[in-house]
C-alpha cells in the first residue's frame, strides 16, 4: 500500500503504474539496435516488457504502404495516416499495457511525427494537437549523431531509398540520395530544436554500441527504482483512464 501511494506522487509521466521508454533519432542513428539491447537486458532481469515500433499497426499499415506506392499522399494525409497507426497501437497496446503496470518500449514515438510532419510543412501546433492524447514517456532517449555519421550508416550498402523515406515528395532534388540528405538534415534540426523543450535524454550516437548501451541501462536502472513490477496496484489504487 505504501509503495503504491508513493508511486502516485512520483513526478514524470502520467501516474500510470507502467513505465514508458522511447527512442528517437534520425535514420541510421542506431536507436533500434539500442532499444533491442535494452529489451534483452530488461527481459534477462525478469521484467515483463512490451515493444512496439513506428508504423506497424496491422490494420493500417497495408493502406499506408498502398497509398505511399501510389504517391497519393499530401503532407496532411501522410501525417493523419501515421497518426491513425499510432492511435491504433496506443489505444490497443501502449495505454492498456501501461495501465496494467508493464514496461513499454517504443521505437519512435510522437516526436518522430513532430519532426517529419513539420519538415513536410504541417503547422507545428496542429501536429502537436493531433498527438495530444499520448502520455509523456518516462524517458525519451535521443540518439544524436552528426548528420554525416547517420547518413553514411544508412547509405552504405543501400541501393534503393524509398520515395517518402528520401523525402522525394518535397521536391528538393530529383536525385534520391541528395533529397534524402537534405530531408534528414531538416529532420535533425527539428529534433535538436525539440531536445530541450521536450526533455530529451541525449545519447552521443557516435560512441560505440557498448558504451551507449551501458549509459542507457544506467539511466533506466535509476528510473526503475520506484517501479513495482506487478499488477498489484490494481488492488491498492485506482488506475486512471485515458
Amino acid at each position: 500500500m505504501k509503495e503504491a501511494e508513493s508511486r502516485c506522487k512520483f513526478k514524470g509521466n502520467n501516474q500510470l503504474p507502467g513505465k514508458l521508454y522511447v527512442v528517437e533519432g534520425c535514420d541510421g542513428s542506431g536507436k533500434s539496435t539500442q532499444i533491442y539491447l535494452l529489451y534483452r537486458w530488461l527481459r534477462s532481469e525478469g521484467y515483463d516488457v512490451f515493444f512496439t515500433e513506428w508504423n506497424s499497426s496491422e490494420l493500417i499499415r497495408a493502406s499506408t504502404s498502398e497509398a505511399k506506392k501510389k504517391n497519393l499522399l499530401t503532407p496532411t494525409t501522410f501525417s493523419l495516416m501515421h497518426a491513425s497507426d499510432f492511435a491504433d497501437r496506443y489505444e490497443k497496446m501502449i495505454l492498456p499495457q501501461l495501465r496494467a503496470g508493464y514496461i513499454v518500449l517504443c521505437d519512435r514515438y510522437i516526436y518522430t511525427a513532430y519532426a517529419r510532419d513539420m519538415a513536410r510543412g504541417c503547422d507545428r501546433e496542429w501536429v502537436k494537437n493531433v498527438y495530444s492524447f499520448a502520455v509523456k514517456p518516462d524517458i525519451i532517449f535521443y540518439f544524436k549523431a552528426p548528420l554525416e555519421v547517420s547518413l553514411s550508416r544508412i547509405l552504405t550498402g543501400r541501393l534503393h531509398l524509398e520515395y517518402h523515406e528520401a523525402g522525394m515528395d518535397m521536391g528538393f532534388s530529383s536525385n534520391p540520395v541528395e533529397s534524402f540528405k537534405i530531408f534528414q538534415g531538416i529532420i535533425k534540426n527539428y529534433y535538436d530544436e525539440m531536445a530541450e523543450e521536450e526533455g530529451f535524454t541525449i545519447i552521443d550516437a557516435s560512441e560505440s554500441i557498448e558504451v551507449q548501451q551501458a549509459i542507457v541501462r544506467d539511466i533506466v536502472k535509476e528510473n526503475l527504482k520506484d517501479y513495482v513490477p506487478s499488477c498489484k496496484h490494481w488492488q491498492t489504487k485506482e488506475v486512471p483512464g485515458i
Binding site: 493523419l80 495516416m81 492511435a87 496506443y90
Partner: peptide, 27 residues
C-alpha cells in the same frame, strides 16, 4: 480510396479505438 477499406474492415470486427476511428475519418 485511401482508407475506406480500413474503416469497413474495422467496422466489421468492431476493433478500433475512438481516437483511431476519429483520425481515420479525418484522414
Amino acid at each position: 480510396t485511401l482508407i475506406g477499406n480500413v474503416i469497413l474492415e474495422a467496422k466489421k470486427g468492431n476493433t478500433l479505438g475512438k481516437k483511431t476511428l476519429s483520425l481515420l475519418y479525418c484522414t
